[in-house]
Amino acid sequence: MKKEKILIIGSQQLGVNIAEFYSLRGDFVLVIDKNKDAFERLKETNYSGKTSIGDASTAEVLDANEVSSFKRAFVVTNSDNSNIYIALLLEKMYGISDITISIKDETKAALVTSPSVKTIMLNQLLFNAFLEGIN
């Protein structure tokens, strides 16, 4: 299978899991997080991709990491606002057409109207998991 270039913004648990998955698949993976301690979790996995420390909501960091060369991105920081904002930046300013973001507050999902951006509704997923557990 052809190697993909995967960009991941946010190195909390979800970002770490996605990073490890694509890294094990043999893809080229870059994880950006503004907090260097966030990469500690990655070190405990079989991740072999790259990491970069910086605020991905700024053009400096996105330019420095040449993000326009990535075809697919996951934006999974702890902040809904940052995720929506960075997704817009990646799409409108860097031409990335396959972006997935996580959102906790589902009332903000209406802000994501572009077909290039898919949303993972975290609380909805969690609730569904509870339901499955109950049933």
């Binding site: 909501s57 606002n81 940052s82 904002y85 817009l88 903000k108 802000l111």
Partner: peptide
């Protein structure tokens, strides 16, 4: 970011 999101 707050400004952009609130405008949207």
């Amino acid at each position: 970011i707050t400004n952009a999101i609130s405008c949207l």
